[in-house]
Design a binder for these strands. Structure first.
Length: 509
RNA sequence: CGCGGGGUGGAGCAGCCCGGUAGCUCGCGAGGCUCAUAACCUCGAGGUCGGGGGUUCAAAUCCCUCCCCCGCAACCA
């Protein structure tokens, strides 16, 4: 058994969560559940990034303190994730002064000791209307595109992170692909290309006067940390680094995977390893980078009015169909689309007609014969379908190709089941005992399908297993449940009888 | 020359790195079955793989070039 530590990005709670948030968490959860199921000792962490100017401003607009704003919004994320059955172990809030701040401030000091930080004067183009610095790229004809005024040159003191120093180190790290992997490859290439273009040192703090909602820089009370040292550090503050409850085992002795979106890929790929290297901490093992969701083919935006709220989908179809859609439709690394039409098609074709119907047709017939399961055979050749299904499935899951695992490997077991069932045509068999023995094979097939579905649709996996009356059904969602002893054909000797068939996925609309 | 992604049957995608009968899902049409959630199974129609040029016995796949689309990133302007 090896240790695995998997994290998501921490969300910015200046507004309620949307489908993009759900997608990332489901992806990470599918991975975490697969890790556990295949016998690893897993720690899964998520959280919220609660500081920064946007929160500060949003709070002002709403006439409340920033703390009150995040205290109001963070539970929206937590409650969504609990409804989505995101099986995280730790939830880090960057405003947590007990658990998060001490690590961040300690890391800051380490960086300082290592010579990574240097105070400089930053000169930038400041737009008074926006109350922020603009880059040349933001400008339209030399003026702010929003306020149409020329920004003024303003200088302020910042602590800078000496990123340039680590360019060679990072290049070596990326090229070696040894212990530090960026998935998918295209993102690794992009990162290298960024490196080739040359790195700039990064502003790590702002004066209190321009950013007050953040963690104070230790030993320099007029400075507040900018996002990087604050937010990225959540990955180790959740492990209590540099405190008296430090647990390095899930970092030093674990395979560390950060699941993040493409928007923050470059920061995770460059700044974070550089920080860790300065501080003498090992780099994470893998960045798993996902794309973005569009809605009905267009960019999700408030002004277009096409922002999809996970709750609407959950209310209509339920949690597992949503998890299924996200895992089935959007290959890791690609952008994906959320389409109600496509959702409905998938729900009907895959979940109701193929999966639900297979379960039902088998179970109803067997139940009429008393449901006895003794003597599970392999006359329909299902054993080899299951065996090769498991092997492809495991390979895909281990390679984070979860779309292939679900859409190809699991669904082809389902489809092979329906196919074989038609060929065998047990309803034409007049001898009850012979018919029962045939049916028992399909029940065993379904047991395996449910196991394979577990990372994707935990609740459904359990429902199927309950209908099948599998002995482990009640404990299969526990974190120490593994497939180790149960993924072999006919391995369940104490399984005697099936349960009551029920409709798994009801028609919607 | 900013960077990146993409253009494959009606729709959505895979295949491209490592050239060799163009594949999957949905949808559509015909037939079969009737155990089952009008579900299941089989067969079929439909593509000169964005255009042009090159390399090669052979190109969706490699090289050059042109055209077109989408982002530069998540609710915030």
């Amino acid at each position: 058994m090896s240790r695995r530590y998997i994290t998501t990005a921490i969300d910015y709670p200046n507004a309620p969560p949307h489908m993009g948030h759900a997608m990332e968490k489901v992806l990470a959860d599918v991975c975490a559940r697969w890790f556990r199921l295949s016998g690893h000792d897993v720690r899964f962490q998520t959280g919220t990034d609660e500081h920064g100017i946007k929160i500060q401003r949003k709070a002002e607009e709403e006439g409340m303190t920033p703390q009150a704003l995040v205290d109001r919004n963070v539970p929206l994320f937590q409650s969504l994730y609990s409804r989505l059955h995101i099986s995280y172990d730790v939830f880090v809030r960057t405003t947590d002064r007990e658990k998060h701040w001490p690590t961040v401030q300690a890391l800051w000091k380490k960086l300082q000791e290592a010579g990574a930080l240097e105070k400089r004067t930053y000169v930038g183009l400041y737009c008074a209307g926006c109350e922020r610095f603009l880059t040349k790229r933001d400008l339209a004809d030399g003026t702010c595109p929003i306020h149409h005024t020329a920004p003024e040159e303003v200088s302020e003191e910042n602590w800078f992170f000496r990123m340039k120093e680590k360019a060679d180190y990072l290049k070596t790290l990326l090229v070696a692909k040894d212990g530090y992997v960026i998935t998918p490859d295209s993102r690794a290439h992009e990162t290298l290309s960024l490196l080739e273009q040359g790195l700039e040192d990064v502003s790590f703090s702002r004066p209190q006067s321009s950013l007050s909602w953040g963690i104070p820089v230790p030993g320099d009370e007029n400075q507040v940390m900018y996002v990087w040292c604050d937010a990225l550090t959540n990955y180790i503050s959740g492990l209590g680094y540099f405190t008296d409850h430090e647990d390095k085992s899930y970092w030093e002795d674990a395979e560390v995977t950060h699941v993040i979106g493409k928007d923050i890929a470059r920061f995770h790929a460059l700044i974070w390893p550089a920080m860790l290297h300065y501080a003498g901490i090992k780099t994470p093992n893998r960045l798993l980078i996902h794309g973005f969701l569009t809605s009905e083919g267009e960019k999700m935006s408030k002004s277009l009015g096409n922002v999809v709220v996970p709750d609407d989908v959950i209310a209509k179809y339920g949690v597992d169909p949503l998890r299924f859609y996200l895992s089935h439709e959007i290959p890791v690394g690609n952008d994906g689309d959320f389409s109600w039409k496509r959702f409905g098609e998938l729900y009907d074709a895959k979940l109701r007609n193929q999966l639900g119907n297979l379960l039902n047709r088998v179970l109803v017939m067997l139940q009429k014969l008393g449901g006895d399961l003794s003597d599970i055979q392999n006359s329909a050749g299902l054993k080899s379908i299951v065996a090769s299904g498991w092997s492809m499935y495991a390979a895909h899951m281990d390679a984070f190709q979860i779309t292939d695992a679900l859409a190809t490997d699991v669904m082809s077991c389902v489809s092979a089941g329906n196919q074989s069932f038609n060929d065998k045509a047990p309803w034409t068999e007049k001898d009850d005992e012979k018919r029962r023995v045939i049916l028992a094979e399909y029940v065993e097939l379904l047991r395996h399908i449910a196991l394979m579905l577990l990372p994707f649709m935990p609740e459904t996996a359990q429902k199927i297993s309950r209908q099948l009356n599998v002995p482990y059904a009640e404990r299969m969602l526990e974190k120490d449940f593994t497939i180790d002893t149960v993924h072999e054909w006919g391995s369940l000797k104490d399984w005697k009888k099936v349960g009551i068939p029920e409709i798994l996925f009801a028609p919607v609309e």
